[in-house]
Design a protein around this nucleic acid. Sequence first.
DNA 1: CCTGACACCTGAGCGC
DNA 2: TGCGCTCAGGTGTCAG
Length: 288
Amino acid sequence: MPELPEVEVVRAGLEAHVAHRTISKVEVLHPRAIRRHVLGAEDFTGRLAGVRIDAARRRGKYLWLELDSAEAVLAHLGMSGQMLVQPEGAPDEKHLRVRVRFDDEGPELRFVDQRTFGGLALDELAEVDGARLPSAIAHIARDPMDPAFDLGAAVRALRSRRTEVKRALLDQTLVSGVGNIYADEALWRAKLHWARPTDKLVAARAEAVLAAAAEVMAEALVAGGTSFDALYVNVNGESGYFDRSLDAYGQEGLPCRRCGSAIRREPFMNRSSYSCPRCQPRPRTSSR
DNA sequence: CCTGACACCTGAGCGC
DNA sequence: TGCGCTCAGGTGTCAG
């Protein structure tokens, strides 16, 4: 499930259903799911047995389970990863990759991932810029829901890049949590075309698009996230409903809510970008 | 250093 | 039906 609101929905579910429980046994059903755990599946399962989960945390699209062993299980959902809380004995999902059982014999935790772009790894926690993070994600910037998020610093970082504004929004080292959907929504709200060069954005415009990203992701979280199909669900398998509130993403041909022009779709980085041709005019100097 | 292209996967939906 | 193509909420790696 991908972007920040959807990942936060999952994190909250993990906090509610697996925090304060002790792991009894872990099974890795597909090696790719733990490819980031360099020491391999045996090391992964061996070190998790008997460990208690203290908390579920998140930065951007990454989440991790803090363990009483002072380590963490770092997780990324990739394009299609799910964390499901299921009764023991429920039939295995087709793409079940990792199963975590607990010593209370309550519901088990399942990492399910069709495309296997996501994965789990055991990692050390490290102090990074005042935060305690799995060391593998030390390079990931704070997200807009982080209490210590610094909007001014994000504005400066974005404007220091020489690239297109949407590429910058998707760069998780500048600001984290934003993906293709919320980038398009933020650009629509800020009335910016995705190809606008970052180094020519005045600070107020850069701030506007970053604030819009924060705002739209907060609204999406209230709605339980964005979900077009069964791939994007919370730990109980339920979909969010923010898709009904999208103004740009996936709206090709539909009237812009502000001006009525038909929303257009343009190729962008091997996928698509949706925007309003009138509210978000293409930059004059852009090649596209 | 920084930027952009590409690889990594599976499955759904479409036109022929 | 079936084939081949395109598309999909992401990111690590590598060449220039």
